[in-house]
């Protein structure tokens, strides 16, 4: 059972902003509700007004064309990403990350925008968006702005979004070179679990290797120091060094899912594995071509 609130449907971007400003702190944007309703059910969050964003023009759907940025409507359910052929072939890492979220039922409702706006340190699409260097296109009282994903998260449950501002689209820069990505997620069960540690690793044909971590800091983090080791060398030693640097950059906490120390150890193990698998995947593409 949920406590009473008013549900309103925003039809346009302006509508959404106005409704949100009117509602003030009593209002919450609603996308798939898979985070929101859970918190409301637990009485942790008691909004008086829910502003449904799902019918705002352009907020659902995927625009993709070779040679252009990939643009994903914030309210697109994760299964839409998982099933999108273009994303699967060109941004496979994103499909993997989206697929790792919750259950099939949850992914039919859970949106990518909700995943990042909820700003859980363990949000599964966040490390991937970090390594793709996504940009968040928002709409708010000051009209539209583009926020780099690296600047989006400010703490657990906290983002740079201002009162009345919502995410409209998520843009992923067009692919300049071939790449191969790997998303590794450690949970307790093999399915439907939150990450204890997660690692997204994207190996690019340019030689760059990008790495981001989930669930090991107050926000998802990109570990550039670890990446830099791999610029010049990709041998086992460099991989081990990168993994150990990733561990150094992680600042996990102990919670009910795992202890701090275990998270640190796993950060190192999984970062190493993610790099190895990403490099091997990239090499395999090279061979095919």
């Amino acid at each position: 059972m949920l406590l009473p609130f008013d549900y309103v449907r925003a039809r346009t971007k302006e509508d959404a902003v106005n409704l949100a400003i009117e509602a003030g702190p009593n209002g919450s944007f609603l996308a798939g509700g898979t985070d929101l309703f859970v918190r409301m059910y637990d009485r942790q969050h008691k909004p008086k007004i829910l502003i449904d964003v799902k019918e705002i023009e352009g907020i659902e759907g995927i625009e993709c064309q070779n040679g252009e940025d990939l643009s994903i409507g914030a309210a697109s359910p994760l299964n839409m990403l998982v099933r999108n052929k273009f994303i699967r072939s060109e941004y496979g890492l994103l499909a993997q990350a989206a697929h790792s979220v919750g259950s099939l039922q949850v992914r039919n409702r859970a949106s990518i925008g909700g995943n990042i706006c909820n700003a859980s340190p363990a949000a599964d699409t966040a490390p991937t968006l970090l390594v793709y260097e996504a940009e968040i296109e928002t709409w708010g009282p000051k009209n539209s702005r583009l926020i780099s994903i690296g600047e989006f998260f400010t703490g657990p449950g906290k983002t740079v979004l201002e009162q009345g501002e919502f995410v409209h689209k998520i843009r992923i820069p067009k692919k300049d070179t071939e790449s191969y990505g790997v998303y590794l997620k450690l949970g307790r069960t093999n399915s439907v679990d939150l990450s204890i540690v997660s690692v997204a690793c994207l190996a690019l044909a340019s030689g760059e290797v990008r790495i981001a971590l989930g669930a090991v800091a107050s926000t998802p983090i990109r570990v550039r120091k670890a990446e830099s080791v791999l610029l010049n060398s990709k041998d086992e030693e460099a991989i081990a060094r990168a993994a150990s640097l990733a561990r150094e950059m992680a600042v996990p906490i102990t919670d009910i899912r795992a202890g701090e120390e275990y998270r640190l150890e796993m950060t190192e193990v999984m970062t190493g594995n993610a790099i190895r698998q990403a490099l091997a995947g990239l090499a395999a593409i090279g061979e095919v071509k």
Partner: peptide, 10 residues
């Protein structure tokens, strides 16, 4: 969420 029981994948 935090009392896990086996799923079909386990």
């Amino acid at each position: 969420v935090d009392y896990k029981i086996s799923t079909a994948a386990d």
